[in-house]
Structure formats: C-alpha cells, structure tokens
C-alpha cells in the first residue's frame, strides 16, 4: 500500500505564493485534484512528484521525500500535462525507452503490455509527431505505467481525448485502482471527475479548500442554498403552494421555468410531492440544478 503524504507544504516563487500550507494524504484508490485554472494544481502535482522543492513542509512517498530522491520513481508513474514528446520516436520506441530507463526486467514484454492497455497497438509503430493529441496522451500514459508503478500521478490526463477514449481511459484508471494502486489526477472535465473519483481534493488559490467524498463535501456546506428546477402541469400554481413551505427560500418563474432555492435539501425532497398534491398539480420533473463540481467550485471561490 502506497501513501503520498503532504505536511504543511507551501511553495512560493519570489513574492507569489503558489501553494499555501497544504496538508493531506493520498492512499490507494482514485483521487481527483480539482480547482480553477491557476489554482496551483500543477504546482501541487509537481511537488508531489518530486519535480519541485517545497519552500516549506514535506512531501513523502511512504516516508521517503520525493524531492531529490530519484529512486522514488521506481514506484511513481507520471503523466505531464505538457505536450512534450520525442519527435523522432514511435510510440513503441518511446514506451520501450521508458521501460529501459526504469530498469524493467523484460522491457519488450512490458512495452507490449502497456501499449495494449492504452489501446494503441495499431498505431504504435508510427512516429509520435503524426499523432493526434489524444494518441500522444495515451502514449504518455503507457510510458508512465510501463514499469508497473504502485502510484500514478496524471496531470490533466483527459486533455484532447475524444469521449470514447475518455471512457476507456476512465475504465483503465478504475481497473488500476481496483488493483490497489494510488492514483491521483487533475482535470477540468468535472463531470468525469465526479464519476471517477473516490475522493476529491479541491484547490482554490493555492489552498486546499476541501477534501473528501464529493457528495459529502457538498452536503457539509450546509449554509449553501440548493437549487432545483421543476416542470409540472401548472408551474404557477405550484409556485404559489411552494412559497408557503417553510424550507423554501425563494421561488422564481422565468421564461416558463420554475426554479426554487432551499436551505434544507432533505426536507424539500421529502415534502415536494405532497406540496404538488395539495396544489392539485402533476409534477413532471424535479432536477437539482447545481450538483455539479463546477457550482461547488464557484461557490468555494466566492467564499
């Protein structure tokens, strides 16, 4: 079992604080690192992968500092966000070189395995300069997992992938997590993060704004109003009925769409059906309007 631990980690560039007193541990399973652009996600991943020195605090992989300890890379696979590749290598050569640089016992076999895992076998003998962004991304992932590392760190791994490739990459990461690996990735594809991660770390302006299960984080923010959109046989009558309900903060009927806000998620979902019956209205649809990570983000950023 591998644990990547950050304790009181800060990183500044001159006067600019990129990461500010962050502490958390990442263990087996899939952890998603989320935050708006410029929040310090890449800085944090680079600190964890040992490519940046912490200005304060410690970053350890199973007790060994990752900075200036190249031997930790026997246990880490890293997929950079940057679109960097050797233009003179085919994907197979690139992955095999990575295997050899990691001192893998049977580099050829490991290469074939990694290439098959990312589904690149048909194109593996083509030069990477002719690849699409998604194919290069898969080649980078193959190189990162060719030495079978227990920890995988991926910076925006879904960048440039089409929806089908995204799904297969998600399946791949799930399968690797099921093997007991520690997987940490950053992404701005919020919907997929929500579907993929067991655990979410939310970074805002260099600080760890929240850590834990996404839905639990969402529930914990009790002071945050929940918003629903409704469709019914008579939105106007339903709005009148709902305005009288104690948990409802506001009701809005605009452009034929009924939106309501409540501070009590549970009370509303339990009471909405009887409110509709009292008004003599048929309820067609009740949809939480803001259960996406994007809205959680913007809420955290505003706070």
């Amino acid at each position: 079992m591998t644990v990547l631990a950050l304790a009181g980690v800060s990183r500044w560039y001159g006067n600019v604080v990129a990461v500010n007193d962050v502490s958390f541990e990442v263990g087996p399973g899939i952890t998603g690192l989320l935050g708006p652009n410029g929040a310090g996600k890449t800085t944090l991943l680079h600190l964890m992968a040992g490519f940046l020195a912490p200005s304060a605090g410690t970053v350890d992989l199973d007790g060994t500092p990752t900075w200036r300890h190249p031997e930790v890379y026997r246990g880490i696979g890293f997929v950079p966000e940057r679109e960097a590749f050797y233009p003179f290598l085919t994907a197979r050569q690139f992955v095999e070189a990575s295997a050899r640089l990691s001192g893998v016992a049977d580099p050829r076999a490991a290469t074939e395995r990694a290439i098959a895992t990312v589904g690149l076998a048909d194109a593996a003998d083509r030069g990477m300069s002719g690849y699409s962004k998604g194919m290069r991304q898969r080649a980078k992932v193959a190189a990162a997992l060719v030495h079978d590392p227990p920890t995988l760190i991926l910076d925006e791994p879904f960048n440039g992938m089409d929806p089908r490739q995204r799904l297969s990459m998600m399946d791949l990461l799930r399968a690797m997590a099921a093997d007991g690996r520690t997987i940490l990735f950053s992404s701005h594809i919020l919907e997929e993060v929500e579907r993929l991660s067991d655990r979410v770390l939310v970074v805002v302006a260099g600080r760890l704004a929240a850590a834990g299960d996404f839905r639990r984080i969402r529930r914990l923010m009790t002071d945050r109003p929940h918003q629903f959109t409704l469709r019914s046989s008579d939105d106007r009558r339903l709005a009148v009925e709902l305005m009288a309900a104690p948990d409802v903060e506001s009701v809005e009927l605009r452009d034929g769409r009924l939106t309501l806000r409540t501070a009590d998620y549970g009370a509303l979902t339990r009471g909405i059906a009887s409110a509709a019956r009292r008004a003599g209205v048929t309820l067609y649809e009740l949809r939480p309007a803001d259960e996406s990570l994007e809205s959680v983000f913007s809420y955290l950023v505003r706070r």
């Binding site: 992968a49 490519f51 190249p70 031997e71 930790v72 890379y73 026997r74 880490i76 696979g77 890293f78 950079p80 940057r82 679109e83 960097a84 590749f85 050797y86 990575s98 640089l101 990691s102 001192g103 190189a143 990162a144």
Partner: peptide, 15 residues
C-alpha cells in the same frame, strides 16, 4: 526547452 526532460527526470536515474 521542449519539456521532454521530464521523461528522464521521472525515472530512477541518478542525476
């Protein structure tokens, strides 16, 4: 310059 140094630095190679 082109960022490929990461593929060497992310391997267990002494500097």
């Amino acid at each position: 310059d082109d960022g490929t140094i990461v593929y060497l630095l992310a391997r267990p190679l002494p500097r």
